[in-house]
């Protein structure tokens, strides 16, 4: 376990041209179409999008966790190794060590027949055969204490059903961070939890990642969460990133009509008479997008060209990329509005 303040040389996660294609009924169904992502060490990247936008498929694809028959191409570099080029046996050795994941539902992610202590210890033992079970147990206790479980050592011998949802998610975080991975993927880690616990878990997750210089990919559809904890944001729509940048850029100088639509749809209590505004139409997955901008059919800014030309993800400003043919017009309008 890495103590606080220890930094280490890691270049985080670098994903290039990731595609994920499912096979259903003999047809290829694209879920992710050419995704680029950069996660900096110790920073939080929020991957935002509606259901079906491909955010979970992207992160599971990177880690080779999708069911067999799914095709994943591109590169995902962690610590100088391309995860996607590894055989499944070699990838298995990297998982949990270089890159780990926290799943959505802590109620089902722990094996009901083993004690919590055994399961945390196992995460250590899988990657360190030299570790004795006593040592593993001692470190499991430290890890549980570190994720804020009261009387951690005493609870090592408890079974998952004796833990609450929030506590179980803490255990999952302890397991994921057991081997100090360079990158941690959290796939909607708070969705299954009580609202009151969500904030605590997010804070814990981001604090620990910053402390041990782990890059965190936070998959979420909750923009409130994004605003609170993320450093960078990438907005996905129909299997692609439509806009990415720092949190401030995304919230205050967003230039993609979809990002604006998402933000306008968030209910707010800080403004009087604020009516959330839904985006017209329904969200679409990457399947069935042929030509043009996938958001064009729902976009009030759409022009003729949007229906025929594919918008590339281009930097509007350094560190702020937008995939919209009319980005500059949209950005200008946004400037005027906020002024």
């Amino acid at each position: 376990m890495m103590g606080p303040g220890i930094t280490r040389t890691t270049d985080g996660l670098r994903v290039r041209d990731l595609t994920v294609t499912f096979r259903a009924d003999g047809r290829d169904v694209p879920a992710v179409r050419g995704l680029d992502l950069d996660v900096r060490p110790g920073k939080v990247l929020a991957l935002v999008g509606e259901s079906g936008s491909g955010k979970s498929a992207s992160v599971l694809g990177m880690l080779g966790l999708l069911p067999p028959g799914t095709r994943t191409t591109g590169t995902a570099m962690v610590n100088g190794v391309d995860l996607l080029s590894l055989s499944s046996a070699k990838l298995r050795r990297r998982l949990g060590k270089d890159v780990a994941i926290v799943f959505q539902d802590p109620m089902t992610s722990l094996n009901p027949v083993h004690t919590v202590g055994q399961q945390v210890a196992e995460a250590l033992l899988v990657h360190d055969q030299g570790l004795s079970s006593r040592q593993a147990r001692a470190r499991a206790g430290e890890l549980l204490a570190r994720v804020g479980i009261p009387a951690a050592v005493r609870r090592l011998d408890d079974y998952p059903h004796q833990f609450s949802g929030g506590m179980r998610q803490r255990v999952m975080i302890a397991i994921a961070l057991a081997n100090s991975p360079s990158v941690l993927v959290a796939d909607e880690p708070t969705t299954a939890l009580d609202v009151t616990v969500q904030a605590q878990i997010l804070e814990l997750l981001t604090d620990l990642c910053r402390e041990q210089q782990t890059g965190l990919v936070l998959v979420t559809h909750d923009l409130g969460v994004v605003a609170g904890v993320a450093d960078d944001v990438a907005v996905m729509y129909a299997g692609r990133i439509v806009e990415r940048g720092t949190v401030d850029e995304l919230f205050y100088r967003n230039s993609h009509p979809y990002t604006q639509g998402l933000l306008a749809a968030v209910p707010r209590i800080d403004l009087a008479d604020y009516e959330p505004e839904p985006i017209p139409g329904t969200s679409r997955s990457a399947a069935g997008v042929d030509v043009g901008c996938s958001f064009a059919p729902r976009c009030s800014w759409a022009a003729e060209t949007c229906l025929t030309d594919d918008p590339p993800l281009q930097d509007l400003r350094p560190g702020h990329g937008v995939a919209c043919l009319r980005a500059e017009t949209v950005a200008a309008a946004q400037e005027r509005k906020s002024r």
């Binding site: 880690l63 966790l65 298995r92 050795r93 990297r94 998982l95 949990g96 060590k97 780990a100 994941i101 799943f103 539902d105 089902t108 992610s109 722990l110 094996n111 009901p112 196992e122 995460a123 899988v126 990657h127 999952m172 397991i175 994921a176 057991a178």
Partner: peptide, 14 residues
């Protein structure tokens, strides 16, 4: 198909 099996895959268990 239970999540804990995938969680085991994700921590690198054989």
């Amino acid at each position: 198909e239970q999540d804990f099996v995938q969680a085991q895959v994700a921590i690198g268990a054989s």
